[in-house]
Amino acid sequence: MKIKTEMDRVSRMNFEEVFLRCYANVLGGDERLGEADPEADVQSWLEFVEECESGYSDSLSEYDFDLYVRDRLQKAIDSQALHLTSDYDDFRRMVESIDGRFREIASTPISADDGESPNWWHKIIPHKGGEEFVNDVRDRLGLIIRRVD
C-alpha cells in the first residue's frame, strides 16, 4: 500500500511554473537524464528504490549510474533559488520520503573510494539483489548480499 500511495503522490505533483523554470535553470539539460523535470526525476528515484526493494537486478556499474538521479535531486534540494519557491517544501518532503524507503533496503555499507561523492546514498547498497548484482557486489566489493530470483 505504501508504494501505491507514493506513486499516487508523485503522479499528482503539480509544480507551479516558477518552480519548474527554476528547477530547469538550476539543473539545465543533462546528457544522462535529459531535460530537467522534477516530476520525472522524483518518479525515476521512486522506481529505482522500488527495484531495489524487490532486488536490484542489473550490474554494480549500472547501479552506480542509476544513483545519478538522486545526485540530481540533491543539487535541486541544495539550490538556494529553489528554496525560495512555494513548491520547494513539498518537493523536498517527497524526496525525503523515498529516501527513507531506500535507507530501509540499502543497509549494507560500502566504502566509496571514488572520491567523487560524499553523499550517503553512494555509501550503501541493498542487502539483496538479482544474480548479476549479487555477483558484481561479491566480485568487486568483496561483500555477500542475499540473492533473489
Rank of each mutant, 00 (worst) to 15 (best):
S111F: 08
R101F: 06
Q43W: 05
E16F: 06
T85H: 10
A40E: 11
W45I: 03
D89F: 13
R103D: 08
G29Y: 04
E62C: 09
L27Q: 05
F48A: 08
I110C: 13
W121T: 05
K123F: 00
D78C: 06
I105Y: 01
S79K: 02
D58G: 04
Y63W: 15
Y56M: 06
P38L: 02
S54M: 06
G100V: 07
S59Q: 13
C22G: 01
S97Q: 08
D41F: 12
R93A: 08
V18N: 13
G100H: 08
D113I: 11
E96V: 03
Y88W: 15
S117K: 12
L67V: 04
A81Y: 06
L46C: 03
S54Q: 09
E17L: 14
N14K: 13
E132M: 13
D37Q: 12
G100Q: 10
S117C: 13
C52T: 05
E35G: 05
V69G: 09
Q80Y: 13
V18K: 10
R101M: 13
V95N: 01
V95R: 01
Y88P: 12
G28E: 07
I98L: 10
R92M: 09
E17G: 08
K75Y: 04
D58T: 02
N135K: 15
S59K: 13
A76L: 06
R103A: 12
D37G: 11
E96G: 01
G29N: 08
Y88S: 14
V95I: 14
Y63I: 11
I77G: 07
D30G: 04
S97I: 04
S57M: 07
D99F: 01
V26L: 02
I77D: 10
S57F: 02
D71V: 12
V26I: 11
V134I: 10
D89Y: 13
F19R: 00
D89Q: 15
F15Q: 05
S54C: 03
S86W: 03
E17K: 15
S59E: 12
D114C: 10
Y68V: 14
V26T: 10
F48V: 09
E104W: 01
S107W: 00
D113P: 03
P38W: 01
L73N: 04
D113F: 11
L20T: 09
P126D: 03
E104A: 07
K128G: 02
L84F: 11
N135H: 12
P109K: 11
Q74W: 12
D37M: 10
L84W: 09
G28L: 09
E50Y: 08
K123D: 10
D41S: 12
V42F: 00
Y63C: 09
E131C: 14
A24W: 00
A24M: 00
A24C: 00
D78L: 10
P38R: 02
E35C: 05
S79D: 05
Y68I: 13
D78E: 15
S86G: 06
D41C: 07
A106Y: 01
P118W: 06
S107E: 02
V69L: 12
D78K: 08
L84R: 15
F65E: 12
Q74E: 15
A24T: 01
R101C: 07
L60D: 02
D87M: 06
C52D: 00
V49I: 13
R32C: 09
E62A: 13
E96T: 07
A112G: 04
K128N: 04
R21T: 05
S57V: 07
E62I: 11
V42W: 00
E53Q: 04
A40P: 00
G55E: 09
S86N: 11
